[in-house]
């Protein structure tokens, strides 16, 4: 089993519902976020192109944050999801520094926090909150090892990219082009 997520950059309107849903579902402290929206405008005026992406932890297959954690607090959970055990985390910040996506943040309670793919909802057979709430249905989630999962199906017939794969992180968050 290998969980993955695909975000359709052509359907995303940048409404930030995913951000608010995540903050609510996971009691993210005020002023922080586990997912966020990025708009990139590129080109020469008037030929401009804008890409909108809902970003979060890439749940890397070769996660630098897991590698550098001195206590083993950052670890791979079922389905390749990278999680933090708050009671093993000393708050040294090494994982925050090691993440090329800057997807982690220091929680005011001391430990380091990040996107969990809403593992507590997945275990109950539900979808991550950002996926469930998206008004344009632009986020696909599922098991990469299952060819019939929503994410496998959409990746099989759409062009996609991941973010800085050249950093060697083996990311599992895809962006449909």
């Amino acid at each position: 089993m290998r969980y993955a997520m695909a975000v359709d950059t052509r359907k995303c309107v940048g409404c930030s519902d995913c951000v608010v849903a995540c903050q609510t579902e996971n009691s993210v402290p005020v002023g922080y976020c586990r997912d966020w929206v990025v708009e990139v405008t590129d080109g020469t005026y008037p030929q401009l192109q804008t890409e909108i992406r809902s970003e979060r932890c890439n749940q890397c297959g070769n996660a630098p944050c897991v590698r550098c954690c001195p206590t083993g607090s950052s670890h791979y959970a079922d389905g390749g999801i990278v999680l933090v055990k708050p009671r093993r985390c000393i708050g040294c910040g090494a994982c925050i520094t090691s993440c090329p996506y800057d997807a982690r943040y220091p929680h005011p309670d001391g430990y380091v926090d990040k996107c969990t793919f809403c593992i507590h909802l997945i275990k109950r057979g539900q979808q991550p909150s950002c996926v469930a709430v998206c008004p344009t249905r632009c986020i696909y989630f599922g098991d990469m090892d299952d060819p019939n999962s929503e994410v496998s199906r959409v990746l099989s017939h759409r062009r996609y990219k991941s973010l800085i794969p050249e950093a060697g992180t083996d990311p599992y968050l895809y962006f449909l082009l």
Binding site: V19, C33, T44, G93, Y105
Partner: peptide, 20 residues
Amino acid sequence: REELIISGRSNPYIDPHLDI
């Protein structure tokens, strides 16, 4: 040619650049 990046993220100690 220009590139403009707008990010909705502004986590303390992380944005605009790492300061952990």
